[in-house]
Amino acid sequence: MQFMNEIPKRSKNRSCLPNCAINFTNCRITIDCTDVFCAVPRQSMKNQRLTYSSYKHRNSFKGLVGVAPNGVLTYASMLYPGSISDKNIVKHCGILTQLESGDLILADKGFLISDIVPNGVSVNIPPFLSTPRFTAEQIQQTKSIARARIHVERAIRRIKGFKILSFIPEPLFDCSSIIFRTACALTNLQYPLIREVSQFYIDVDAPVV
């Protein structure tokens, strides 16, 4: 079952670009990964090791999500074992095949993926501190990126609000990716993350004409 796996073109994003993304008119998607805790696999030591997240100190699955500049959640990968790196998820989930020259990806510092994206695709992450303090330009750049990419974190909070994703028991392992993607899709039925783009949504309370 495949859904939540096609991202809109830049032209589509530009048609409803919010003010927070005005400096990133060529942004195709903002990405981040999230962990979903799971039961310890009982039958396989290998799977126990693969699902153990050294960062979370628990067994988990990990998925990549992406939002358009207007805050709509447009992409959700399948779930991977919790030990996998963010970079490897990006490399193997298939999202790179949809990107085109001129596209921009916004991401957090952990996404060092510039060497694996297609030619002509840019990756914009907050600058690393290589001097005693950030320059004024770096501070402004960090703030600008943060304003644009905070909405993927807000989308993840909504996804995690579904109780079924608080813990995946072993009997649900085989359908965990479908559960994850369904939760991601359902978040788009909630009120828009960015108020100024609500004008592009259908008012469900309005009378049907």
Score class of each variant (00 low, 15 high):
Leu165Arg: 10
Asn47Ala: 15
Val121Cys: 11
Val65Thr: 07
Asp35Thr: 10
Ile164Cys: 15
Ile145Arg: 13
Ala136Tyr: 08
Ser15Leu: 05
Leu172Ala: 14
Ile31Phe: 06
Arg158Met: 02
Leu104Gln: 14
Ser176Gly: 05
Ser53Tyr: 11
Phe61Pro: 09
Pro41His: 06
Arg158Val: 05
Met78Asn: 14
Ser44Val: 05
Asp108Glu: 12
Ser85Cys: 11
Gly82Phe: 07
Asn47Pro: 02
Ile145Phe: 12
Thr182His: 03
Leu106Thr: 02
Asp205Pro: 03
Thr30Val: 15
Leu17Lys: 06
Lys12Glu: 13
Ser77Ala: 09
Arg10Thr: 09
Ser54Lys: 13
Tyr80Gly: 12
Leu172Thr: 06
Arg154Asp: 01
Glu6Cys: 14
Ala206Asp: 12
Ile7Lys: 15
Ile179Gln: 11
Cys16Asp: 03
Ile164Trp: 02
Asn70Trp: 00
Ile116Asn: 09
Val209Gly: 15
Ile178Leu: 14
Ser44Ile: 05
Gly161Ile: 01
Pro8Ser: 08
Ser15Gly: 08
Arg157Phe: 00
Tyr201Lys: 08
Ser122Phe: 11
Gly66Ser: 12
Gln141Pro: 00
Pro171His: 12
Val152Glu: 01
Lys62Tyr: 04
Val65Pro: 04
Gly102Asn: 07
Asp203Asn: 15
Leu186Gln: 09
Arg158His: 07
Gln43Ser: 15
Ile125Ala: 12
Ser122Val: 01
Ala39Phe: 03
Cys93Ile: 06
Asn47Lys: 14
Asn5Thr: 10
Thr182Ile: 10
Glu153Asn: 12
Lys56Ser: 12
Asn70Glu: 01
Phe61Asn: 10
Gly120Ala: 09
Asn26Gly: 01
Pro126His: 08
Asn19Ser: 14
Leu189Trp: 06
Glu100Ile: 04
Gln2Glu: 09
Asp86Pro: 10
Cys184Glu: 02
Thr97Tyr: 10
Ser122Pro: 00
Ala21Lys: 00
Arg133Ile: 01
Pro192Trp: 00
Leu112Glu: 13
Leu79Tyr: 08
Asp35Leu: 15
Gln190Thr: 12
